[in-house]
C-alpha cells in the first residue's frame, strides 16, 4: 500500500505546530497503524530527521498509552479499537490520512502526537480508590456479590484511561472517564463507605482541571475503545447530587 500522511509536528508544548506531509509505501495490510508509523520513523531517522513522537507501549489495546486522532476520529475509524490495534487493512491504497494529537485544553501537547494526561491521574488521586490498607482485608468470599453486579462493575472498570472520550468531545469533557471509575467502585459493596465523598471529590477535581462540561453529545461513548456507556455519567450525576444534598464535601 502507498499512503499520504499528514502528521501534526510540534517540537515542544509552547512551540507552534503544523501538519507535515509524508509519503509512505510498501505498507502491508497486515501491519498495525503504529507499525506503519514505526516504518515512517525509521525512514525519517535514516534521513537524519527527528522521528514523530507518539505514546504507545503494550500494543495490545489495554495500557491506554496510544492516543491519536486519525482522520478526525479518536483512535481511527474502527469501532471499539485502540490505535495500536487498528490495522492497515482498514485503509485503501492511495488514501490520505490525517494524524493529530488529542485536542483538549486539559491535555497540553508534549511533542507531536504526545500529550499530557496527568489530569486523569489527579482525578483518581482525589478519590478513585477504596481505602483499604494492605493486610486489613477480610476473607475474600465473606461478602458475596451478585454476578450481574460484578459484571456491571467490570464493564466500567475496563476503562483504559486513554483519553479518547475527552479528545472527541466538542467540549473536551472528562465525564465518561470520571464516571467509569465512580461507577465501578460505587456498585460494589466494598465501595459504599466512601461512595459520597468519592463522587464529590472526583467530580470537583475534574471540574478544577481544564476539562469542559458534558452536554450529552455522546461522542465519548462512540469512540471509547472499551465501549463504556454514557449511562455511567447519569449514575455519576445521581451519586454526586445525592451526596451534595446530604451536604458532603471534598475529602
Amino acid at each position: 500500500m502507498k499512503l499520504t500522511l499528514k502528521v501534526w509536528r510540534q517540537e515542544t508544548k509552547d512551540a507552534p505546530g503544523a501538519l507535515q506531509t509524508y509519503e509512505v509505501d510498501d505498507i502491508s495490510p497486515d501491519y498495525s497503524f503504529l507499525e506503519m508509523l514505526d516504518m515512517l520513523n525509521e525512514r525519517l531517522e535514516e534521513q537524519g530527521q527527528r522521528p514523530v513522537a507518539f505514546d504507545h507501549d503494550c500494543r495490545e489495546g489495554v495500557c491506554g498509552a496510544c492516543s491519536m486522532m486519525v482522520d478526525g476520529q479518536a483512535h481511527g475509524p474502527q469501532a471499539r479499537t485502540t490505535t495500536c490495534q487498528l490495522h492497515m487493512r482498514e485503509f485503501t491504497d492511495g488514501d490520505t490520512i490525517v494524524i493529530e494529537p488529542w485536542r483538549a485544553t486539559a491535555f497540553s501537547i508534549v511533542q507531536d502526537l504526545m500529550v499530557d494526561r496527568s489530569a486523569f491521574d489527579r482525578i483518581i488521586q482525589a478519590g478513585g480508590f477504596i481505602s483499604v490498607n494492605t493486610g486489613s482485608a477480610p476473607e475474600a468470599n465473606l461478602m458475596p456479590i451478585p454476578k450481574d453486579v460484578a459484571d456491571d462493575a467490570f464493564d466500567a472498570a475496563t476503562c483504559i484511561g486513554c483519553g479518547a472520550c475527552v479528545a472527541q468531545c466538542p467540549n473536551g469533557a472528562a465525564q465518561l472517564f470520571t464516571a467509569a471509575k465512580i461507577g465501578h467502585l460505587s456498585l460494589l459493596p466494598q465501595g459504599q463507605a466512601e461512595r459520597d465523598t468519592r463522587a464529590v471529590s472526583m467530580v470537583e477535581q475534574m471540574e478544577s482541571e481544564l476539562f469542559g462540561s458534558c452536554s450529552n453529545f455522546r461522542e465519548c461513548e462512540a469512540v471509547c475503545p472499551k465501549a463504556i456507556s454514557i449511562d455511567w455519567i447519569a449514575r455519576m450525576n445521581r451519586d454526586y447530587l445525592r451526596a451534595k444534598l446530604k451536604g458532603v464535601t471534598r475529602r
Binding site: 461478602m143 454476578k147 465501578h184 460494589l188
Partner: peptide, 15 residues
C-alpha cells in the same frame, strides 16, 4: 486484598 480494593473478579451466580 484485591477483592477489598474493588477488583471485579469473575463470580458465580451465588456471588
Amino acid at each position: 486484598q484485591a477483592v477489598a480494593q474493588g477488583v471485579p473478579f469473575a463470580r458465580e451466580y451465588g456471588g
